[in-house]
Design a protein around this nucleic acid. Structure first.
Lengths: 211, 211
DNA sequence: TGTCAAACATACATGTCATGCCAATAATTC
DNA sequence: GAATTATTGGCATGACATGTATGTTTGACA
């Protein structure tokens, strides 16, 4: 799952790599079709045809039609979690989260991402459709679990610790909310990473709950 | 949506009430079938037949097969949010959240809920199936939005305020995590409300993020 | 280089899901 | 009690998703 560009004697075999590449490729094709024609107006056969594969082959790469966009949605946070695990051990949790997030925005390790306009268009589509919204939430739910080991290691606790799990959930939710606000925003005055940064700093200080 | 038992000159017309009752009825029937035979082994026709309605009628009440369990999953938190809005204005946010939650556990206003064993069985089923998991996450995403007005009113801010939204998201996530941990737990030593109470108090004090 | 095995892609068939459309029945109003 | 409206049900249909069987590529090894 954690297929990043680096990795020395990495585990992901070459065939795994190719499979992952195909997934992101199809993901981009599908996102394009969805934003162009609409989600319901796009059949799986359309996606398969546009990706140059048979219907049955499509289902080897994705469990369901909605899942096609998952790789695109996950691309951003995945890199973030990777960097968090590698971040300077001397940093506090909040600083490490902020630093690694900023770094992942500046120079993403994976070329999977979309530019901001495409991502915004996709997120607006996601917000409007039930099945896609479910995938969006699922991606963040998975991120929550990915965050736990990284946070646990940093604070010297178990990933199964309630506090670790809550911290992962809180931070993760903050990022999701920031992204949703950014996507829903009228004008594109603020960039996505600025919105996320603000939200992270806010939860770090406790916000309304501390008052 | 907020069909509670009380309400003076309530908006929900009688026909709306009946519709809601039918939904919870079908919901219980479906949950029973799911936990008995398994989700995939249960067809929509099975659910419709067991509910005494035609297939076509079923789809007038639910958009999709998975959605059948949504009313059951939402029953708990809905009552909580209702009580939060009514809670003593002198209480601080955290205290109000805790008090209203405890109250909703003790004497639920709606008889929609399942007993703890049934709920636990359902949640374990939910965790194991992708489509059901999506509904679970969706229910909590909706709760997040329901919490916002109640929190906003209490702190004297707008529901669209970032801090309000983050507080709603954090609290909501804490409840979800607590429920998931409770459902996944080996023995039933702790009750669900105790788990939720612990999580709420933890996020109220800032937890790891405050350190 | 030729042969084999394993992994992968495609075709076909099938069952379920979900919805549009129209008829029948029940509820409501006058 | 007749007319109007809402709700339900049956039927047909297209799309989704998967099991199975059949090619087709790939790569190892003699």
């Amino acid at each position: 799952m954690t297929t990043s560009t680096r990795r020395g004697p990495g585990r992901p075999s070459l065939t795994e790599r190719r499979k992952e590449d195909t997934r992101t490729e199809v993901s981009r094709v599908a996102a394009r079709l969805f934003t162009d024609r609409g989600y319901d107006a796009t059949t799986v056969e359309d996606i398969a045809a546009a990706s140059g594969m048979a219907l049955r082959t499509f289902y080897r790469y994705f469990r369901a039609k909605e899942e096609t966009i998952a790789p695109l949605l996950a691309a951003g946070t995945r890199d973030w979690v990777d960097r968090l695990a590698d971040a300077d051990a001397s940093l506090g949790l909040v600083d490490a989260l902020l630093t690694s997030y900023r770094a992942s925005v500046r120079h993403a390790r994976t070329p999977d991402g979309l530019d901001e306009d495409q991502l915004r268009a996709l997120l607006r589509l996601v917000g409007g459709h039930s099945a896609l919204r479910a995938v969006w939430l699922n991606v963040y739910r998975d991120t929550e679990d990915s965050l736990r080991p990284a946070i646990a290691a940093r604070v010297g606790a178990s990933p199964d610790d309630l506090d670790v799990q809550l911290a992962a959930g809180t931070v993760n939710t903050a990022v999701r909310i920031a992204m949703e606000r950014w996507a829903a925003g009228e004008s594109s005055v603020r960039s996505a990473d600025e919105a996320v940064g603000r939200a992270l700093r806010a939860v770090a200080t406790g916000g309304l709950l501390a008052a």
